[in-house]
Design a protein around this nucleic acid. Structure first.
Lengths: 121, 121
DNA sequence: CGGAATCCGCCGTGATACTG
DNA sequence: CAGTATCACGGCGGATTCCG
């Protein structure tokens, strides 16, 4: 329901954000970027994510071409995940965002304190 | 419920994403960055956002110190919003993300098509 | 081990109506 | 014009169970 005439890029921006704005997706990408290749339960333990959400998230990331999935039909089964080239390139802007955030967290906290103090009256 | 021992940064990353991962917040910041100063209904029309969500979003952004709110007690009332210095600096990493997205949208679409085709069997 | 399927509570979001 | 308040709905996400 966005006004395309006054904000022609909003639709694309929204499409982007709905893809990359997901909390779990970004965390999975960051983990894979840091550790290289990881197994399903390895990611699960590392992120504290539920099986359901990890499964859904990985499926989406694989569908979007950000993550490779390798299935080893052993017993017990073994499935490994790692980033594709696009997944790796995606990490750059995300890292920039994370870096900005870490740099400004204290400023944000201070601003909140000031704001809350003024609101309570 | 994140495992701090195996992923000590996850908590902070989550905190960051919950702040900047919001769809409307980012769109508001981008609009203000592009147009400078805007009024409430101007933002509303421009983004196609509901009154409720715009009100909540602006309040959060002001609380976090990213947006300045200026109230003119005229009749009818007039309220203007613009970015703070931190809000302006926030735009850089967000723009990087948007730029990456625009560059890779076609690749993502292609990956989805391939994936979907393979899944349907 | 790596999922898929089901159930269900919570809440983000929009629509609507009201206020100053 | 710039909000606030209320309601109703859809979907995200966790817990649980079952399967290959």
């Amino acid at each position: 329901m966005l006004d395309d005439e006054r904000c022609p890029d909003c639709k694309r921006i929204n499409e982007v954000l709905s893809r990359v704005g997901d909390r779990w997706s970004v965390l999975v990408v960051i983990s894979l970027a840091e550790y290289g290749t990881m197994r399903f339960n390895e990611l699960k333990r590392n992120l504290g994510i539920s099986q359901r959400m990890l499964s859904l998230t990985l499926k989406e990331l694989e569908r979007d071409g950000l993550v490779n999935r390798t299935y080893h039909p052993t017993i017990p089964p073994k499935v490994e995940y790692n980033l594709t080239e696009m997944g790796l390139s995606f990490r750059e802007p995300v890292s920039a965002l994370g870096f900005w955030a870490l740099e400004n967290l204290s400023r944000i906290d201070a601003a909140r304190e000031t704001y809350d103090e003024a609101v309570v009256k």
